[in-house]
Design a protein around this nucleic acid. Structure first.
Length: 201
DNA sequence: CAAACGATTTTCT
DNA sequence: GAAAATCGTTTGG
């Protein structure tokens, strides 16, 4: 079943980030269907989180989407090359978001490899936020799209992740956020080969 | 209006 | 292991 809006509008972004593990991200652009199990996420707790683009209540053209009610996609360009896909959570005007860092491909794998220009099926196909977005065909033009339409949605296929298989860790690439970089806001499935390595794991 | 920078990935040494 | 690639957003003049 497709996750209802009420799944995203809850107030505990960290809890939602944990619950997204095992859910299935599906995209259908131009008739090409691709899907993958979410195996790694990172929570960004808006205003009080220095690592978030919206920390301190910053509100700009780019971050405007994060102020929407939960259930929308926030996609932005990083390093001029990579499209990072986030899920907006919480209520309107509370800019919380969850970065989807990695998925385990289950459908449309051939299409993903073609998008990534790869010959063989290997973890680097979807391990890492930029790589995952490219494999799924997601780009900045999809920012603001609701995750309940035909282009992008997340569904629950009854996959259950045991609590002991969920690992909490510090986030990747946010050293500039100082003390907030130490928050255990990154979650991933233990021993899953599709989880990205990050930089300093 | 100009300049610096980043929630990363790939490639070369 | 180190460095380059590359551009929209943000910040400063």
């Amino acid at each position: 079943m497709i996750l209802p809006e009420s799944f995203y509008t809850r107030k505990d972004v960290v809890k939602i980030a944990r619950e997204l593990l095992g859910k299935v991200l599906v995209t259908g652009f131009d008739g090409v269907h691709t899907a993958g199990i979410i195996v790694e996420t990172e929570a960004y707790a808006g205003v009080s989180d220095k690592a978030s683009h919206a920390h301190g209540g910053r509100r700009t053209g780019r971050t405007e989407v994060m102020y929407m009610p939960g259930g929308a996609a926030y996609v932005y360009l990083c390093y001029g090359i990579h499209h990072l896909f986030n899920v907006v959570t919480n209520l309107r005007d509370t800019p919380h978001a969850i970065l989807i860092r990695a998925i385990e491909p289950i459908e449309g794998i051939a299409a993903m490899m073609e998008r990534r220009g790869k010959e063989k099926l290997q973890p680097s196909l979807t391990a890492g936020p930029g790589a995952m977005s490219q494999a799924m065909g997601i780009s900045t033009q999809h920012t603001g799209v609701l995750l309940r339409g035909k282009e992008i949605y997340i569904e629950d296929r009854g996959i259950k992740i045991k609590p002991k298989d969920i690992v909490a860790a510090t986030r990747v690439g946010v050293a500039y956020a100082q003390d907030d970089a130490l928050r255990p806001y990154r979650f991933y499935i233990k021993d899953n080969k599709w989880v990205s390595k990050g930089k300093g794991l």
